[in-house]
């Protein structure tokens, strides 16, 4: 075993505590009513689908649940040739 490992024993519990606080804050908020971010995600996709033909394979949705804010990143590839649907 490395000596480095022996001397680098900083505690991991504070990290665990912080991760859990963030996670549980989000999970508790989403019990009962459905998850706001999930609702936004679906509605954003629905609105876009109304106007352009989106290929579900070309959509990437990323989320990062932070302590104070969640970022929702919806990345949609719209081909130049995609016809604008009649309103």
């Amino acid at each position: 075993m490395s000596i480095f490992r022996f001397f680098s024993k900083q505690s991991s519990a504070p990290t665990a505590r912080e991760r859990l606080q963030v996670l549980l804050a989000h999970e508790r908020a989403s019990v009962g009513q459905s998850d706001l971010v999930a609702v936004l995600r679906e509605e954003i996709l629905a609105v876009i689908a109304k106007h352009v033909q989106v290929d579900r394979d070309r959509v990437s949705v990323k989320m990062d649940r932070g302590e104070h804010v969640t970022t929702l990143e919806v990345d949609i590839e719209i081909p130049i040739t995609a016809g604008v649907r009649a309103a």
Binding site: R19, V22, L23, R41, R56, D57, V59, S60, V61, K62, M63, D64, R65, G66
Partner: peptide, 23 residues
């Protein structure tokens, strides 16, 4: 795995057709 903050869709979403596997 340390990915809990980044879960968007899950296995059931994929099975029910709400999301693609790649998503």
């Amino acid at each position: 795995m340390g990915a809990e903050r980044r879960v968007v869709y899950d296995l059931v979403n994929v099975i029910q057709g709400d999301a693609k596997l790649t998503q």
